[in-house]
């Protein structure tokens, strides 16, 4: 700034030197007769400008700038609100998704448990039925065996008597043969 004004002052000197004879008449700026009209009109013009600026022009500009600032802030605020809303919606979606998933899992578990219970029941029933069948078969076998054993004794007595008759040539007493067979059966279990 200082160099600039110094440059201008050098220029001024140059110009004034070039002006030469004009300087003799004096600078118009230094004529005191011109001071009062300039000051009066400076005061009028500047006060008028100040009043127009302060009362009319600047408030208008300020209003527009404030309005723009407010719009920008409003928009930012709205954007923040919408973002929060979007986040809440996303959270609710996640929560409902998780709930649905757990509910589905519960349902699957219930179905699986029910199926397992039914299978176990059916298996138990089947086992019981099989056991009863086995028992029935066993008792039938035992009955038949007893029957067979009973027939066997009579047959053994008959065989014993026949054999005695053949061997000894004498008919054995049926009662004695029965006793002997019984004794042998007893002995053999």
């Amino acid at each position: 700034m200082r160099t600039l004004s110094r440059g201008s002052l050098i220029g001024l000197t140059l110009a004034v030197t070039a002006a030469g004879p004009a300087l003799a008449a004096g600078l118009p700026q230094l004529d005191p007769n011109t001071f009062s009209p300039q000051l009066v009109w400076l005061a009028i013009a500047f006060v008028a400008l100040y009043l127009i600026m302060a009362k009319v022009a600047l408030p208008k500009v300020g209003e527009v700038l404030d309005e723009r600032q407010r719009r920008i802030e409003d928009s930012l605020e709205r954007a923040t609100e919408l973002e929060a809303e979007a986040r809440a919606v996303a959270e609710a979606y996640e929560a409902s998704l998780a709930e649905a998933r757990s509910r589905a899992q519960d349902a699957i578990k219930a179905v699986r448990d029910a199926a397992a219970g039914e299978a176990a029941q059916r298996q138990a029933d089947l086992g019981e039925k099989l056991a009863a069948d086995v028992q029935a078969a066993e008792s039938r076998i035992a009955g038949q065996r007893d029957e067979a054993f009973a027939g066997l004794r009579d047959m053994a007595v008959e065989v014993a008597r026949e054999a005695a008759a053949k061997l000894v040539g004498q008919e054995a007493d049926a009662a004695a043969a029965g006793r002997a067979v019984d004794a042998v059966l007893e002995e053999r279990g």
Partner: peptide, 16 residues
């Protein structure tokens, strides 16, 4: 008191 409207005044008013 001299309060004449001059070329200077004219340009002040023009500026305003």
């Amino acid at each position: 008191f001299d309060a004449s409207f001059t070329n200077s005044s004219a340009f002040m008013v023009l500026t305003v």
